[in-house]
Design a protein around this nucleic acid. Structure first.
Length: 229
DNA sequence: CCGAAGATTGCCT
DNA sequence: GGCAATCTTCGGG
């Protein structure tokens, strides 16, 4: 199925608060048209972040170099790097000047599964179809989204990263909502939305602060130890 | 300048 | 279920 039977999502769709846009993105399709091929995913799980009004948002403390895109025009991708190895992608909402965005947490690969699997398994063994884009970092890896797509206009027809849809009729009865995953602030706010019963939805995990790495105290040479040059 | 935590994932016990 | 990997970003000193 290479043909996109869905229409591009108009920019006006994103000109609302993230918590209103979020459920409407379920069933829509995000596609990345790269030199090595195209991969498209049908969105199955999202989370809304309300910028300066939301303690869990990266934009909570105002505009910084990293969050600049979130304060820009709606319909653009806010891509960030985290944990020293993962990328995650959001779609910016509300007019320029006000930060708001929807994190894409999971999707079902509907085009380019072979390429997606190659990207996902580059450092490991084969990846099951349901796990190709299950989780925000996995979704980015499957789509080949990295730093260079930060700020990409997903509403522009010729953009390498674009959104269309919906490709699946998702009614209010199909949508579930609950607390957001892995955050330490405003964790009780139910701004995570997903398609009920979809196998690609990621498992819920409450935030667990990682113990600070044990400080490397000066280590005197161990007496009697076998020293290796 | 330095330290600490992070919108995660995958491998280990 | 626990924890290491790995490095950017931000806030405090």
């Amino acid at each position: 199925m290479g043909g996109a039977l869905t229409a591009p999502v108009p920019r006006g769709f994103f000109g609302r608060p993230a918590q209103e846009v979020a459920p409407g993105l379920l069933g829509c399709v995000l596609s990345h048209h790269a030199p090595d091929g195209t991969v498209a995913v049908l969105i199955t799980e999202v989370e809304a972040y309300a910028g300066m009004a939301d303690a869990a948002s990266h934009a909570f403390r105002g505009r910084t170099a990293r969050t600049a895109v979130m304060f820009g025009d709606p319909g653009h991708a806010y891509v960030y790097f985290t944990y020293g190895m993962h990328f995650c992608v959001n779609l910016v909402c509300l007019p320029a000047g006000t930060a708001s965005a929807v994190l894409l947490r999971a999707g079902r690969v509907i085009e380019g599964a072979t390429l997606a699997a190659r990207r996902r398994s580059a450092a490991g063994r084969g990846v099951g179809e349901r796990d190709l884009a299950r989780g925000p970092a996995r979704l980015c890896q499957a789509l080949g989204i990295g730093r260079s797509l930060n700020g990409a206009d997903v509403c522009a027809p010729g953009s390498p990263l674009r959104i269309s849809g919906p490709a699946l009729a998702v009614t209010a009865a199909d949508v579930r909502r609950g607390p957001r995953v892995g955050i330490s602030q405003a964790a009780e706010v139910p701004w995570r939305f997903w398609i009920a019963g979809d196998p690609t939805v990621s498992p819920y995990r409450a935030h667990v602060p990682r113990r600070a790495a044990a400080k490397a105290v000066s280590a005197p040479a161990r007496d009697g130890g076998t020293m290796q040059p």
